[in-house]
Amino acid sequence: MVRGAVVESAVRFGVLAGVTVVSISSVSPVELLVAAVAAAGGAFAARRLRLAAGVAPGGAQGAVRAAVLVPAGVVRGCGVLTSALVSGSRRAGFGRILLREGVGAGWAGVLLAASPDTCVVEIPEPGEVLVHELGPGPGPVDGVVADAEGAP
C-alpha cells in the first residue's frame, strides 16, 4: 500500500517536474528548486484528489497507441473545425462512447478532448465518455479507445 503510494507520487512528481523544466528557457538552480517544490505539491494534491474521488489507477490498455494517434487526431480535428467554420455546417452533436475493456476513462477523455473537433462533456461511469463532436465520424483516437458497439 505504501509502496504503491510512493511509486504513484514519484511518477506524478517526475512528470510534473519534467514538464516544468522543459517549459522554461534557461534552467538555473532557483528554477529547478521552484519546479521541484511545485511538482511535489502538485503530486501530493493529485493523489489526494484521486483518493477523494475513489478512483483507482489502471486501465492503461491501448494508451500508448492512442497517444501516438493524438497528432493525427489534432490535424483531422483542425480540418473538421475549419471546414465547419467555412461552410457553416451544423453537423455537431452529442455522442456516447463506450470504452473498450481495460481502457481508463480519465486518460481516454484527455486524449479524446485533445482534438479540436471534440469536447468531452462528462464521464458518467468508468467505461463511458459523453462527447460533443463536430466531425462526420470517429477520429483516430476513438478507434483505439471505443468499443465497436459504443462508437459514436
Rank of each mutant, 00 (worst) to 15 (best):
V131M: 03
E133T: 14
L16A: 11
V144T: 06
A114Q: 01
C119S: 05
L130R: 04
P136G: 14
P140D: 05
S89T: 12
T20L: 12
T118V: 15
G41K: 09
V30C: 02
I97D: 00
E149I: 09
R3C: 07
G95P: 10
G104W: 00
V21G: 05
L111I: 10
T82V: 14
A63W: 13
V80P: 13
L49F: 14
F13E: 05
A108V: 07
V7D: 04
L134C: 12
A52R: 13
G4K: 01
A84E: 02
H132T: 11
V19A: 15
R50D: 02
G88D: 11
S25A: 13
A5D: 10
L51P: 03
P140A: 15
L51H: 09
A148Q: 09
G102V: 01
E8T: 04
V74G: 09
A148G: 06
G104T: 14
V27W: 00
I97F: 08
V37S: 02
G54P: 07
V145T: 08
A148I: 08
G143Q: 09
G137C: 10
V30N: 01
C78G: 11
R3A: 14
G88T: 00
E125Q: 13
P57H: 07
F44I: 11
P126H: 00
G77D: 07
G150P: 04
L99Q: 02
V70L: 05
A52I: 01
V121G: 01
R50W: 08
G139H: 03
L112Y: 01
L33I: 13
S26Q: 11
G137S: 14
G109T: 07
G54K: 03
V11G: 02
V30W: 06
A43M: 01
S89L: 08
E128F: 08
A45H: 09
R90F: 15
L98G: 11
R65L: 15
W107A: 02
V86C: 08
A35I: 02
R48V: 15
R3D: 11
V121P: 01
V22S: 11
V6G: 02
L85R: 09
L33M: 13
R47C: 03
R96H: 08
G18R: 04
P116G: 00
A40H: 11
A114Y: 04
V80I: 15
V121K: 00
A43R: 00
V103I: 03
V64D: 05
D147F: 07
C78V: 15
R90Y: 11
A10W: 06
G79I: 03
R12V: 12
A38Q: 07
P124G: 13
L112F: 02
A84V: 06
R76T: 12
P57F: 01
F94I: 04
S26L: 13
L85V: 12
V75W: 14
G59V: 03
Q61V: 15
V80C: 12
V86A: 06
V70F: 01
A60E: 07
S87Q: 06
I24H: 04
V70C: 12
S89E: 10
V2I: 10
